[in-house]
């Protein structure tokens, strides 16, 4: 099987490219997304939300290459056997690529690791998500934007899930760049048009030392169903995920932007849906 651009052996099927042409294609696609949606301004510094996994590591590498002004921010939730491993990879990657890395831990910020918090019977992903978002927002403030590793699979799954659940205001989260609201830090997603498989191939071909492991806590089963359904559909109808996102963006252009109601937490001043934010409510429940 030959590359569609040269006589080298293809390493990827759709599109059919050799190693060199695949890397060129992938980087060009990411840089075009950054340009087309004006994801970065020349002057601002971008915080990259890093997990040590392939997606955020690819974003970190490409923003460093394209924009230069980046700082890596990682949250150590304290998931033994998972996060401690991915953080070792991330530390190595950042020192090799000369990138500043800041790590904030649940233990230091909230007095407990995620493993310890869960002894009190909350759902791991919701507790984890609340505290991760909280710390990201808090420590990214003052920088331009937060870049995340969300790819085409994550985003097309989110669109379908929010449609099925009727969460119309959440559809505004599944975009290459979120709108400016209150003192939330804007999110950018340079991998918005890259499939999970493409990102994995890029990370592998570039020799990034990233673990392909999943978090040990059990995933949202609804997301797994949507992922399997989309992957099965994509296999028969190539381009399905891309079409979902393109039509989704087109529809958003035609409806009025409405943010769901929020105020500022009376304890910590971070944005909140109620008088006291979710993070502060959880911290209080630990005491």
């Amino acid at each position: 099987m030959k590359c569609s651009k040269c006589s080298e052996k293809a390493v990827f099927l759709v599109p059919k490219f050799c190693k060199k042409h695949f890397i060129d294609y992938f980087e060009k696609k990411v840089f075009e997304t950054i340009k087309k949606f004006s994801l970065v301004n020349p002057k601002e510094k971008i915080v990259v939300a890093c997990s040590g996994g392939k997606d955020s590591t690819a974003v970190l590498y490409l923003l460093k290459k394209f924009h230069k002004k980046v700082v890596a921010l990682a949250i150590d939730e304290g998931i033994f056997g998972y996060r401690n491993k991915t953080l070792i990879d991330l530390k190595k990657f950042c020192s090799k690529n000369n990138i500043e890395l800041r790590i904030y831990s649940f233990e230091k910020e909230f007095g407990k690791t995620l493993d310890e918090m869960l002894k009190q019977k909350q759902h791991p992903c919701s507790v984890c998500g609340i505290f991760r978002r909280y710390l990201m927002n808090k420590y990214a403030r003052g920088f331009g934007k937060i870049a995340t590793g969300h790819n085409m699979d994550d985003e097309s799954q989110a669109v379908l899930m929010n449609l099925m659940k009727g969460n119309v205001d959440l559809l505004w989260h599944s975009v290459p760049m979120t709108k400016k609201v209150g003192n939330f830090v804007q999110r950018i997603k340079p991998l918005y048009f890259c499939s999970e498989k493409e990102v994995a191939a890029y990370a592998l071909l570039k020799g990034f030392e990233v673990s392909f492991n999943e978090c040990l806590y059990i995933k949202d089963s609804f997301r797994n169903q949507v992922r399997d359904a989309l992957n099965n559909y994509e296999l028969e109808n190539s381009g399905t995920k891309l079409n979902i996102l393109k039509k989704h963006l087109l529809m958003l252009e035609k409806i009025k932007f409405e943010t769901s109601f929020f105020q500022y937490c009376s304890v910590c001043d971070e944005p909140a849906k109620e008088d006291i934010c979710k993070a502060c409510q959880l911290i209080k429940s630990f005491k």
């Binding site: 390493v11 099927l13 499939s195 191939a201 071909l205 099965n232 296999l235």
Partner: peptide, 19 residues
């Protein structure tokens, strides 16, 4: 296994599903 969800490495190098 759905090929959309995996990469295949043969003798240390990335290959396509058609190999």
């Amino acid at each position: 296994i759905n090929p959309t969800s995996v990469l295949v490495v043969k003798n240390g190098s990335l290959v396509t599903e058609e190999d």
